[in-house]
Design a protein around this nucleic acid. Structure first.
Lengths: 254, 254
DNA sequence: ATCTATTTGTACGTATGTATT
DNA sequence: AAATACATACGTACAAATAGA
């Protein structure tokens, strides 16, 4: 449970609700409240801070938007400390990169080193259930797709393979980042329609990599897992680059 | 400018303000509004959505908490689309990891591969100004510290070296993650008081690495930069591990 | 420098919705 | 089924900030 450097420096002046939200956050940390613990109700907060109902409510919304609390109505209801969900964290971080125009290359620069690292660290550590999930996932794209819609679905599914692995990471940081990159790629490739494998041989090679990878993971062969994933990433990147070129040619020819 | 998959699935029922916030977000994307553009005032939103003032305000606060808008009072004031700042993104992501208890090892597993990658990609790309900043930074810890407080300051400064580099990354994703990890380490090491170099030789070696690194960056020697940074990370990690052990011994002996 | 218009910010009272007992 | 406890939503009134005349 490391502390957080959330509070920044001397930005102009914070609005009341923001101040209250920060105060509540501090209070929670100070009290050592854990996820699930209830915090004071509106009425009490109103007197504690001497603020109007609306102000308190806005403060609660801020904390809620950050994923730090949930609120429930009814008796015994109120605000509850909540562990920020991975989904929420990914969405919030996605907002940051929305303005950044990332390229596929940027993402693969990281995937190229991080995914093999993850694969190596998971060798021999996955339950049969998870290994089965990975195999079931591969099964959904064992045959080349018939139409565009199916290609899109298969592309998303093949990315999902990596998300499943990411969720199993012992290292939360590594797991989160890979998971997040999978999301970025899903968005980017669907948005830019980069999901038609332009080279069926490469596509097959990628699928076979995943099969071999599951075997290496099951066998606990860490080095093999790393090396397969490394090859797999090279293939995946090569596929993406070809697709980008393809799309560009399509634009030019029209 | 990639799209965002912020909207999740069918979570129970969203409160009105959240719905309104989402609607406004969609509207902004739909209208193609850019950072700095003004969005409709409270009054107009009230009629547009047929909601009460308070509800609209809570929606605005949600967007503000996510770093997507800023609001100003006065004539011509209102809500303005705002590029999510890196600072804000780091804070929001920090909230996620607050509940995760990361280890120093988790962070170094990533630094070990990502920092060399960054170093290599920056070789020959930095302005004289930035190179100077890096050297000035090193100068602040050119001599071993006298007291604990100075050790703490030096430790933070030597981390700042990496933040400066991260800010220069061409790859926004790589830059952000390294920057974020530097923050995590600052928090963790200060919180756990892991800033006293237990081994003066290793400490000196680390400092010399940084000096050599700046030279390699200036000379545009990408491979050398990568390899120096790689060594530097190994040293840094070794230092941290020794300090963790030190702290543990201190606990045991007391 | 002062006033004025505009727009957000704060306060409060009341009514409605919702879940627990 | 009814009473209770709590959040949710609404509407109005007024305060504060800021740009422009």
């Amino acid at each position: 449970m490391p502390p957080v450097t959330t509070r920044s420096k001397d930005e102009p002046k914070l609005s009341r609700p923001v101040q209250v939200a920060e105060a509540i956050k501090d209070w929670v940390v100070e009290q050592g409240l854990q996820a699930g613990d209830r915090l004071p109700g509106e009425a009490e907060l109103i007197v504690r801070f001497g603020m109007a109902k609306g102000t308190i409510r806005e403060a609660m919304r801020i904390l809620e938007a950050q994923g730090l609390i949930k609120t429930r109505t009814g008796p015994g209801g109120g605000g509850f400390v909540h562990e920020v969900s991975r989904q929420r964290a990914k969405a919030l971080l996605g907002n940051y990169f929305y303005f950044k125009d990332l390229t596929i290359g940027d993402i693969y620069q990281l995937r190229l080193t991080l995914e093999p690292e993850l694969a190596a660290s998971l060798a021999g550590k996955l339950s049969d259930d998870i290994l089965q999930q990975l195999e079931n996932n591969i099964a959904t794209y064992s045959k080349p797709a018939g139409d565009l819609e199916e290609e899109r679905a298969q592309h998303i599914a093949s990315l999902r393979f990596h998300a499943i692995m990411a969720e199993q990471a012992q290292n939360p940081l590594l797991g989160f980042i890979i998971d997040f990159m999978v999301n970025l790629l899903s968005d980017l490739t669907v948005y830019r329609r980069l999901y038609s494998p332009p080279n069926i041989e490469l596509w097959k090679q990628g699928r076979d990599h995943q099969r071999a990878l599951v075997k290496a993971l099951r066998d606990g062969d860490s080095n093999l897992a790393r090396s397969i994933m490394s090859d797999h990433m090279e293939i995946a990147w090569a596929l993406m680059r070809q697709q980008e070129v393809d799309m560009q040619n399509r634009f030019i020819s029209e």
